[in-house]
Amino acid sequence: MPQIKAKIVYNKKVKENYWCCVFNAPEVVKKASPGQFLNIRVEDKELLLRRPFSIHGIQGSGLGIIYEVLGKGTKYLSRRKPGEYLDIIGPLGNGFDYKTQGCQGTMVPVLVAGGMGVAPLFFLAEKLRENQNPKSKIQNVVLIGAKTKNHILCEKEFKAAGFDVRIATDDGSRGFKGYVSELLEKILSADLRHVQSASSKDAERSRGIYACGPKPMLKEICRISRKYGLSSQVSLEEHMACGIGACFGCVAETKEGYKRVCKDGPVFKADDLIW
């Protein structure tokens, strides 16, 4: 994980308060894997710590993040112009295990994104597609949860990657009305009825869940995953100090005690986390 100065090539608002920033970072691109993150320096006297962002996608030597402008750090980032440089450390952390899980035909990948949780999942979607046998009949699925229809991110991009996109909005302005975790449970219980009534091979395939989003959502995903006996991986979002495992500041409780979100995660097996 190098520390580099990356030149910004694009930094624009996507919709609402969501922004996308792309910078040139060939050294990072080479090593990047879905679920890993970057720690970006905020060059401001008062704001001290770097800010972690999931890698959203790569194209050539370009690397993209998406972010919601919420505090002073993201405001700083949104004011950076193409041609300026960002001080970046990355790629950091352990990403999704997508090679041994989910794309070998034994599992149907279901991506579950809540709000900004689409950030790492889109990069994962591209990798899943790359690794999938073109003849595979498995239909990859992504569930996107958002506040309203105006807050839905990356719908087109997921469709272009061949994903079956299902939407949940808190206010019901698009798709399922409710949380994306509720939508997942609805789909899984329908699966169960299907398995009970049919003997098709497809129905025997279990689903592999990959989720990212706010903590209450991930807690629900872990509960649902256990209930249905699924193999699930969740990416935790956490405030970090060092981002490289040195300070032990960003821990999550697991079956094996506290683990560092930045170094041992941010992706954990749902079964290992204790909420």
Binding site: E46, L47, L48, L49, E238, H239, C250, V251, A252, E253
Partner: peptide
């Protein structure tokens, strides 16, 4: 946790 937070400078 939480074990850390940022404060002014």
């Amino acid at each position: 946790p939480p074990r850390t937070c940022e404060t002014p400078s």
